[in-house]
Design a protein around this nucleic acid. Structure first.
Length: 446
RNA sequence: GUGAUUGUAGCUCAGUUGGUUAGAGCGCUGGUUUGUGGUUCCAGAGGCCGCGGGUUCGAAUCCCGUCUUUCACCCCA
């Protein structure tokens, strides 16, 4: 059979994993510095944990795991006859692949609430799965790197998370704009326009502003049943780029004013330290995930065409779904695959991270091969990443292998070297060769 | 889920209006050389032409289905 992998999934070669780990390590270091602790959760969750948390669209994108055993005995024959896939699926699948890291985290918090010391700051770097059609920068399996805090509603945490974004992306060398808005501001906008009932329709429409333009948004809003007068009011508010003018517009919306207050509070904390990247209020930022209730974030790369490479926000009642009320949470997520693509496109990976092997030993014959193995042991004992070609075959072949491995140095060992103890060190870039004793070599490689 | 698009050697791709044993470059293997690679020279291996069906004397080529690729929409990291 011809080997293949499922659509939307990828293999990662050594150099890709090394680059990806470079991103992960950078993110992890910053998370730890800000006091976040690691947890991991299973790839599979009970479907009941996942469904209903991401909206109808999200539910459709959940990967379901077929039950084991004689699952057809217990299946819903009526639903099958009616060709009701959703209902039938319920009867043959009780587990699903996790769709993000936030909902499993909320589940974890509720299950472990007695052992957790609140506020609880955790980070998590694991893959998630979505049954989406693959596209540019979209896969069915991808890594998320999340940091969340639960058990405090302090706006200081929003500021801290924005600082994490700023610090990670400046370490990686990616210029970004951190966009911030507040769901309460969006609700205030709906109230001010008199369309509070159509809040969700309004937010999904204006979220597309940068893509389809004001004209497209107008069309979309009127298609969703909004009155012309309301649309006009919304358009007026969408052109606002600062908080001040909104205060007058929101004078009858308690929620809207609260949103403005929260954003101001955020800035009181955040502005105490200069940031490397721009943090920008964007009233058109809406975000699809329906569990957000307060501040929302989105990060876009300035120098590459790519969807958002990070997002997050505050969710006041995510644990409420699992029976723990009154625990507020806020978190951010990094899209590792997209960050990878952006860094690749802009050539931002450091040159030397892919080269881990310091030197390759090659031997001419069997006695010198064994002697070279003892040299290899010495180098490794000194903490140097080294390798010996497994057989003393033709030099041509061994050198070709060295090239393919992109190793910077080759140590050539033959009877001459074995007798004198002076080893031939070949610089694979310049092609030059010189003799060194073992201690000299160790010194050079360190 | 909707609309397009792609599939031929390990990789990148040719393959004429349907016509005999399907080609190239790179890579790979062996030889040449031989105490030295990123530069030769010679030889060789490797293809259910994505998969299934159909039209035809004859299909890589035309038709249908299916899977896959890429892209846009929906949605989203």
């Amino acid at each position: 059979m011809k080997p293949s992998i499922p659509k939307g999934t990828r293999d990662f070669s050594p150099s890709q994993v090394i680059k990806r780990n470079y991103i992960f390590d950078t993110i992890r270091r910053v998370f730890v510095k800000y006091g976040y602790q690691p947890i991991e959760t299973p790839a599979m969750e009970n479907l009941s944990t996942l469904t209903g948390k991401y909206g109808d669209e999200g539910d459709k994108l959940l990967f379901k795991v077929l039950n084991n055993g004689e699952y057809l005995n217990k299946s819903d024959a009526t639903a099958f006859a009616e060709k009701n896939s959703a209902k039938f699926t319920q009867s043959v699948s009780k587990r699903g692949m996790r769709y993000d890291l936030t909902v499993p985290f909320a589940r974890y918090v509720v299950m472990n609430q007695n052992d957790i010391n609140f506020p609880f700051k955790r980070y998590q770097i694991q893959p998630v799965w979505r049954a989406d059609r693959p596209q540019k920068g979209r896969y069915q399996e991808f890594y998320q790197c999340d940091a969340d805090v639960v058990g405090s509603d302090s706006l200081m945490l929003e500021a801290e998370l924005a600082q994490i974004y700023d610090e990670v992306f400046s370490l990686l060398g990616v210029n970004v704009t951190i966009k911030i808005n507040n769901r309460k501001v969006l609700f205030g906008m709906a109230e001010a326009a008199g369309v509070a009932d159509n809040f969700m329709a309004m937010t999904t429409a204006i979220d597309k502003l940068d893509k389809i333009g004001m004209e497209g948004v107008t069309k979309e809003l009127s298609a969703r049943g909004l009155e012309d007068a309301a649309i006009e009011k919304i358009q007026e508010m969408l052109s606002v780029t600062t908080l001040e003018p909104l205060k007058e517009l929101f004078k009858n919306s308690e929620t809207g004013l609260k949103g403005i207050e929260e954003l101001e509070e955020f800035h009181k904390y955040f502005d105490t330290k200069p940031a490397a990247n721009k943090v920008e209020f964007d009233i058109t930022l809406a975000r699809g995930l329906s569990y957000y209730t307060g501040c929302i974030f989105e990060v876009k790369a300035n120098d590459a065409v790519m969807g958002s490479i990070g997002g997050g926000g505050r969710y006041d009642d995510l644990t409420g779904n699992f029976g723990l009320k009154g625990v507020s949470g806020v978190g951010v997520s990094f899209g590792a695959a997209r960050i990878f693509d952006v860094m690749e496109e802009l050539n931002l990976f450091p040159e030397n991270i892919a080269v881990q092997l310091k030197c390759l030993l090659v031997a001419f014959d069997q006695p010198s091969h064994q002697y070279a193995f003892s040299i290899l042991n010495e180098l490794r004992s000194a903490g140097i990443s080294a390798e010996l070609y497994p057989k003393p075959t033709k030099m041509n072949k061994q050198m070709k292998y060295a090239n393919a491995r992109a190793v910077p140095f080759v140590v050539v060992v033959g009877s001459e070297e074995m007798n004198s103890g002076n080893l031939s060190l070949k610089d694979m870039i310049s092609g030059e060769q010189e003799k060194h004793t073992l201690p000299e070599l160790i010194d050079k490689f360190k």
